[in-house]
């Protein structure tokens, strides 16, 4: 790495005094423009042929360079989307050789069973609370980080750290903390004369538990993105408002919040997408999905849990994907607008 670094420096250094190359380029252009009117037809023909040969060679280079990656993406990212739709029309036990076509039967079953309201409800609660929690706490942490304080770089790194950690490892650490008998939390609750609730066995509390852990893991990401947004707010604006006698709260509501709105929207969409895909923490903390069956987890349990219902699982995946698609479409539209805005 050190060697390639110095190589890079030498290349950059040799090309940095770009005056020579610039001169070459302008001379070329001058020569072309002065010659073009004189003998246009033959030169144009030669140029086109040479250009064609180079283009054809480039085409092969492009294919050789990009094809492996693009084929992998097509095979393992795009193909499954279509295959899933096909699977979702089958009554099919995973691993069995035969399947019967049931049309939209799986969807009818999902939406007419109590499963649907339960799963969709859990998904909605989990998504809204994790997105809201991570964003609000992230903004508060970002505001604290945005002051000129000693150690804020360190604090920024620490707060961000859980975001890069394995959800399985994080889930286990918190499962121990939440343990109703030996966990730290039960010890604290006993200290104030309370009995620890059964976090894992009570479906409602299990959802609260995974929500807390998910927010803990992801709020650092929101904080760092919000911090970048805060630092792009011009300081003169804040100072001018302060001189006009605007209070801290007033400045926050009238300047910071509106100027952060592109950041907020970006975070809202990316957090929604990742919350809807949350798997690791839920799987490790509540393996049976008692009270924590979100769409993604229910889809997993149906196919790879005890039921092996591949077709039904695929139908749930399609429902999830359509939801994600709608949000992605919103994002694309908004990103477009944001680009125009800035």
């Amino acid at each position: 790495m050190g060697r390639s670094n110095t190589d890079g420096a030498s290349v950059a250094a040799s090309t940095a005094p770009g005056g020579m190359h610039d001169r070459v380029r302008t001379e070329n252009r001058d020569a072309q423009s002065s010659r073009v009117p004189v003998d246009r037809p033959p030169l144009a023909g030669i140029k086109r042929r040479r250009w064609n040969r180079r283009t054809r060679k480039d085409t092969w280079v492009f294919v050789a360079f990009a094809a492996p990656n693009i084929l992998l993406i097509l095979l393992f990212t795009y193909r499954p989307l279509i295959t899933n739709i096909y699977y979702s029309t089958l009554d099919w036990t995973l691993g069995s050789a035969s399947a019967t076509a049931v049309g939209i039967g799986n969807y009818v079953e999902f939406f007419s069973s109590p499963d649907a309201s339960n799963v969709l409800g859990v998904t909605a609660i989990f998504t809204v609370t994790t997105v809201g929690g991570a964003m609000i706490l992230g903004l508060l942490v970002a505001l604290a980080l945005n002051q000129r304080l000693k150690g804020r770089t360190f604090a920024r790194a620490v707060v961000f750290a859980p975001y890069v950690l394995s959800g399985v490892g994080v889930g286990l650490v918190w499962l121990f903390i939440f343990d109703p008998t030996y966990g730290v939390l039960s010890w604290i609750l006993r200290g104030v004369g309370q009995v620890s609730p059964q976090w894992v066995n009570d479906p409602k509390l299990a959802l609260v538990m995974v929500t807390i852990v998910y927010v803990w893991k992801n709020l650092g990401y929101c904080a760092v993105v919000y911090l970048a947004g805060l630092q792009s707010i011009p300081t003169q604006l804040m100072e001018a408002a302060a001189l006009d006698g605007a209070s801290n709260v007033r400045r926050f509501l009238s300047i910071v919040v509106p100027l952060l709105s592109p950041t907020t929207f970006f975070l809202l969409i990316t957090s929604l997408l990742s919350s809807l895909q949350a798997f690791d923490i839920i799987r490790i903390m509540t393996p049976s999905g008692n009270g924590t069956s979100t769409l993604i987890f229910d889809s997993y349990l149906q196919a790879f849990g005890s039921y092996n219902r591949a077709g039904y699982s695929a139908a749930i995946s399609v429902v999830l994907f359509v939801g994600l698609l709608i949000m992605t479409a919103v994002q694309l539209r908004f990103v477009e607008r944001k680009v125009h805005y800035s």
Partner: peptide, 15 residues
């Protein structure tokens, strides 16, 4: 492809 969640492609890829 950046926005397609890997989780929904798990079953077809498994097959």
């Amino acid at each position: 492809a950046l926005m397609v969640p890997p989780q929904v492609s798990v079953l077809p890829n498994y097959v």
